[in-house]
Amino acid sequence: MLPEEDKNMNENILEIKDPVLTLEGLSVAYDTNVAVKNVSVGFKKNSVTAIMGPSGCGKSTLLRAINRMHELYENIETTGKIILNGQDIMDMSTIKVRRRMGMVFQRPNPFPTMSIYDNVIAGYKLNGIKLKKGQKDDIVERSLQDVTLWDEVKDSLFKKGTFLSGGQQQRLCIARALAFSPEIILLDEPTSALDPIATAKIEDLLVKLKESYTIILVTHNMAQAARISDYSLFMYLGELVEYDKTKKMFTNPKDIRTEEYLTGKFG
């Protein structure tokens, strides 16, 4: 009985050829409470992968494990392998890991003491990396262009970032993550604090950004996952239940739990 179940589980999880990022047997525990259980999955380069699931299913925990944010907290233990382009990131310094993976949080969190300009190059500034004025200007303009914020703020670059609207602030935070040209961008429910118009802008942006970045997006919004993601992961109670192309999963879920979640039976 058990081996068969195992086989079933594997069938529900899509295998990605030449993944840019692979998780192997990743588990995360808060004290003794295991929030993410033995997740193994590969992420496709230059695509948007959505991590879905009801509240408390461990989707944010999984995302934050990827750039090792959990190491800030002593009571959280992460086990397993995270392989980025063939290298296990557990063997790298967290500083290097985080420079290769940008992260955007649930609520926009620009640095309140910094101008828009300084927020974009904060990654360089805070790390003490010296740049020439021209280089800085280039990075700021390119990053803000990438997030379609340039035209809105080019005349007020030296105003505080916190004066922007919520949606603009969130795009600024994405620009800040892009400034380092990371390989992967991790987004933790980036639109949950935004209105529909700001949300639509961010969604368009993510679709555009996948041309040059690999995007992993946690969302509790199924419609959002359906709109913008190429691949979807469904998690339930810390387990990876199903992983497939988004279209396939939404039209033909294999696991009964996925189907019930997608049809709104729980969530």
């Binding site: 750039n67 944010m69 800030l72 967290t94 500083i95 290097k96 890991v97 985080r98 420079r99 940008g102 992260m103 949080f105 609520r107 969190n109 620009p110 640095f111 309140p112 003491t113 904060a122 990654g123 500034k125 805070l126 790390n127 003490g128 935070c173 800040r176 993550a177 380092f180």
Partner: peptide, 28 residues
């Protein structure tokens, strides 16, 4: 807010720099 600290750490900023360049200016 913890989010501000995490934002800096997520940029790969070493901890002592987060204290000196984020926490102290923000709480100045």
């Amino acid at each position: 807010p913890n989010a501000i600290k995490e934002a800096a750490l997520a940029l790969g900023v070493p901890y002592y720099r987060v204290i000196l360049q984020i926490l102290i200016p923000t709480g100045f």
